[in-house]
Design a binder for these strands. Structure first.
Lengths: 127, 127
DNA sequence: TGTCGATATATCTGCATCCGATATATCTAT
DNA sequence: ATAGATATATCGGATGCAGATATATCGACA
């Protein structure tokens, strides 16, 4: 296992986490990421949709287009455009998420060993 | 700022951390990473040397070849091959390391918000 | 003496990912 | 009518990862 545990698709972990809180459609996912991170993170469309496709092919999520009420729309949702594709986590996706969370915690713990050593001002000469 | 804060060269952070504990040459750095991570991580030569070159060009580290004692070698070092290139952290490199550490801590804190939500079994149907 | 494995540095290259740009279309508000 | 937000999707340049390859020295063992 190479160093890449630190990174290997951090986006996947975040998207899977959002989906663990309930079904969402793509655009809402990107908004949720921005909101939960206070604008610090953003997932662009060019990254999100390929990722969702990949997750769908891997059966980590299942997807379905919603019924479009062309007119009507009596409900109070001020919501936007139609043609929404909803994604929900599969059991397999939930397992993957748990794996990724555990891998992340392990990687963070290991990294702390490196950082901990570096935090202390323990070096001699600085050129 | 995109999601890539989570990753953006985790290798650089690790190498800089190792160098913060004192000057090292390339091969020793890769061994130290393996040792400190209990073999969980490894930095291949194909990744390490280009990175060290990059860090040197960016003046984050300074490098110098050691004097080779062709014969002699009275000291007790059982050490291996010659032609060692030693790297040491510069002041600029130390600053970069501190930045990277802080960025990592921020990113980890944000990620915990996502994971924290996902940790709780708070989703409805699993397909 | 001869060969093997470890030490040591370095480049090349295939693959995947990141993410800005582009395309299309609908809905809301002014 | 026009602009901006909503919504999905693909393309392509830039970058990074990591295995393969190349070269050379040193210690150990038969």
């Amino acid at each position: 296992m190479a160093m890449s545990d630190l990174q290997t698709d951090g986006t996947e972990l975040v998207v899977l986490s959002v989906l663990a809180q309930g079904p969402q459609y793509g655009y809402a996912i990107s908004k949720r990421v921005a909101a939960l991170s206070d604008g610090a993170w953003s997932i662009g469309a060019g990254q999100l949709y390929p990722l969702l496709s990949k997750l769908e092919k891997a059966k980590l999520v299942s997807a379905s287009w919603d019924e479009v009420k062309a007119e009507g729309r009596d409900e109070g949702d001020a919501g936007g455009g139609r043609r929404r594709k909803w994604y929900r986590l599969t059991a397999k996706g939930r397992q993957r998420l748990d794996q990724r969370i555990e891998a992340h915690r392990r990687a963070t713990a290991v990294l702390e060993r490196f950082i901990g050593g570096a935090d202390v001002d323990a070096h001699g000469g600085v050129a």
